[in-house]
Design a protein around this nucleic acid. Sequence first.
DNA 1: TCAAACCTTACGTCAACTGTAAGAGTAATT
DNA 2: AATTACTCTTACAGTTGACGTAAGGTTTGA
Lengths: 225, 225
Amino acid sequence: MANIVIVEDDIFLREELQNILQKEGYSVVSISSFDTPIEDILAAKPGLILLDLNLPSISGFQICRTLKMKGIGPILILTARNQIRDELHALELGADDFLTKPCHPKRLIARVQKLQQLYAKMPMFLNWGNFQLDLKRNELYIAHNSLSLSENEGAIMKLLIQHAPAVVEKEQLFHELWGSSEFVDENILQVNMTRLRKTLDKVGMSHHIKTVRGIGYQLIGSESP
Amino acid sequence: MANIVIVEDDIFLREELQNILQKEGYSVVSISSFDTPIEDILAAKPGLILLDLNLPSISGFQICRTLKMKGIGPILILTARNQIRDELHALELGADDFLTKPCHPKRLIARVQKLQQLYAKMPMFLNWGNFQLDLKRNELYIAHNSLSLSENEGAIMKLLIQHAPAVVEKEQLFHELWGSSEFVDENILQVNMTRLRKTLDKVGMSHHIKTVRGIGYQLIGSESP
DNA sequence: TCAAACCTTACGTCAACTGTAAGAGTAATT
DNA sequence: AATTACTCTTACAGTTGACGTAAGGTTTGA
């Protein structure tokens, strides 16, 4: 079952939470050092994040915002601060639920389950400018149009969007699509780029992919050259 | 902006809620007669339902369950009953959030907004019992498993779930899948039913489709024969 | 101008989905 | 038990879309 990452500085409470969740069958990772919490959270591959607001070095709000910008979630805030403005602020930053301590274990479990069910069924979107890519369906939304991409087209588009507006190196495209650049004809990438461009042309958007000679490809914004 | 439907029997509270939401720019419909609440809610084309639990004729739980089975939502429970078991029960029935009265207006608004944002991105689901069908992707969720269905399998499953636990007539399946039953070999339906059953068998669920000799097919619950 | 880098098109393979055909199995009725 | 209508299963073939390969053309920049 997916990792639940606990971000809580009170040792006693942390272990209690860990017990509750583990009894329920979840695998739990606790963040105990708060020097680089965001990196630590990402490293744990969180399936859900249980986040306190009062933390030593960095605020829970800050963590929440940073994670949400990367599309990480779900995030459940669990805090002793029961001010309504904290709740509003957290929800505004993208937190998915907000519970106050003390919290009944069963309520916690129920909310955790709810969020996990929700996220399992939610589409995963990747955004940049006018481009929005549904990663599960390889459906690309541009302005008010939408396109169905093939596997390969989706994978390329994913990299382009993730790095936009920077250049994606050919090496990286090879690595992502074919495992490595060894034993693969360089031409195959060109063919797939042509195909992607042809697909984008259905909505007149192929010029958004720019070739960077000798390096790779790049997604460019709507401010045309 | 989308309709919010208030289901609350206390007149005073109802009008207060209505004021709060309307000030925020929502269009609101209140259910004031509780003879046929479910029909009334459906008729109002709800974009979100604000549901009390203690109601005159029928319980909020019952309404919640019925609506969720039809894939209607989001549903926000707002009740004076602050027992944890009510919350657990409501969430189990598919409620999307649970707030207790008295509730700070800003909290209510924040939660309402959150749910609406969420649902805007959500796929369209069709529910019955353990079965949940993602209509856009033809992805079928059963308990904790999921299956990818083909076009035809998805179309059949859609009809079965929509009518469950009633029998779906062969005529209707023909009509939906092939336009009419004219000029189509009856066998084609049988073949597709076999294929759907084989797919369901991957998670041991094929026995949930029952043949009704001479009439059609039917989805049956987990209370095995 | 010329060579490296890039683009395009055509072709063959493969897998998934679908409908057809033929025969086997099953249940209700006599 | 035999009959008959209804249903199930399996195998086969056509279609489609995605993909990689190959071959030749085009562009770019020194």
